[in-house]
């Protein structure tokens, strides 16, 4: 177990290191002078330029600059955003939380819908139910996320008017920032009309999370179905039938767990796909998340924001993936342990 932890932690550190190096070199990879890119000050005098260069430790070698950069990263000084002038660390942590919140709800939705459907399709393998579900899943899988989001807006918020068009919560409510997750923040806050605020936030959540969940839901369903089919045709299931257990007993005692264990990591890994999709959908719904933030930053050539935002997103995805992988390897009862901390 210690070996597994060590392996994963070393993998994580190494990858994060490479990531940070890449994000550092972004400043040089952007078109133009790196110092101008980072500060946003275009036409400074020679003197001013020298001061700035000193501030940004530009006179040292490439490596010493990197060292400086990492130090700043760790001390929480991620630079300032051009567009708002606010420190990036705070801005990114806020928008990242909004993105994570959105993806988390979408993940929950796709699990709640996808898992049972997958089990149903798997148990009715090669029957009408199975084919119907598969067809639906192909359709769901093939719909582009942004298109689905736009259509959802057209139908449900413009034509029917059931859900709000964009944003996270109505402007009427001013929820104080605590955790970054709006639903939790509302519950923690002492707003006079908490209940309405909560309902309003939920209504804002529905369309974006559902439109992200469509794709993931089909993926979850297909993975589950495949696994259920495989497990139910395996020898120990046949053996359990031959021992005279009823189909229900066989399925509940031996089928479910065995079908879920190999796919749980795959399913949880969908979170990263989900986050990517969420970043697209955010721009459509003007959700104040990291995707929306990054796109705005790109439009406005806000180089420090791009740099920090990318680092934050990729670090989050990486940490999440590696941690899940580690946890699963530690707790897999059948001891299926791949040799390397890869994948």
């Amino acid at each position: 177990m210690l070996k597994i932890i060590l392996r994963h932690v070393s993998l994580l550190i190494l990858t994060l290191f490479i990531l940070s190096f890449f994000s550092f070199s972004l400043a040089y990879l952007f078109p133009g002078d790196p110092l101008v890119n980072l500060t946003g000050i275009r036409d400074s005098s020679e003197q001013g330029y020298a001061i700035l260069a000193k501030q940004y430790a530009m006179q040292g070698s490439f490596l010493s600059q990197y060292w400086e950069y990492v130090n700043h990263l760790f001390s929480g000084n991620w630079g300032l955003s051009f567009s708002s002038g606010l420190p990036l660390a705070e801005e990114i942590s806020r928008s990242l939380a909004a993105s994570v919140e959105l993806s988390a709800y979408a993940l929950i939705v796709s699990f709640v819908v996808g898992l049972p459907l997958g089990f149903l399709a798997g148990l009715r393998h090669h029957k009408l139910t199975d084919f119907a579900l598969l067809t639906t899943s192909v359709i769901g899988y093939s719909i582009p996320v942004f298109w689905a989001a736009l259509i959802a807006i057209l139908i449900f918020s413009i034509q029917l008017g059931w859900f709000p068009l964009s944003g996270r919560i109505s402007l009427l409510y001013d929820v104080p920032y605590q955790t970054g997750f709006i639903l939790i923040d509302i519950l923690l806050s002492d707003l006079p009309d908490k209940e309405f605020a909560f309902k309003d936030a939920l209504r804002h959540l529905v369309l974006p999370s559902v439109s992200i969940a469509i794709v993931t839901c089909t993926i979850v369903m297909r993975i589950t179905r495949r696994s259920v089919v495989e497990v139910m045709s395996s020898e120990y299931i046949q053996a359990a039938y031959a021992r005279g257990l009823s189909p229900r007993q066989v399925f509940l005692r031996h089928g479910v767990k065995n079908a879920l264990i190999p796919i749980l990591p795959l399913l949880v890994m969908q979170f990263t796909t989900l986050l990517t999709n969420a970043m697209i959908v955010e721009t459509i719904f003007s959700w104040p998340g990291i995707g929306n933030g990054l796109i705005q930053a790109i439009y406005q050539r806000d180089f420090p924001a791009i740099r920090a935002g990318m680092l934050a997103v990729s670090a989050l995805v990486l940490t999440f993936t590696i941690t899940i992988d580690m946890v699963i390897q530690i707790f897999d009862p059948a001891g299926r342990r791949p040799e390397n901390a890869t994948s």
């Binding site: 395996s234 020898e235 120990y236 046949q238 053996a239 359990a240 031959a242 021992r243 005279g244 257990l245 009823s246 005692r253 031996h254 767990k257 065995n258 264990i261 009862p333 059948a334």
Partner: peptide, 27 residues
């Protein structure tokens, strides 16, 4: 099917070829 299962449960038992793959790996 039910009656048959009952008979098999009480009167007939099977020992399978591959003991390892005929046992549930996680129970």
């Amino acid at each position: 099917v039910r009656e048959r299962r009952k008979i098999i449960r009480s009167d007939i038992s099977v020992i399978f070829q591959n003991p390892k793959s005929s046992l549930d790996p996680i129970v």
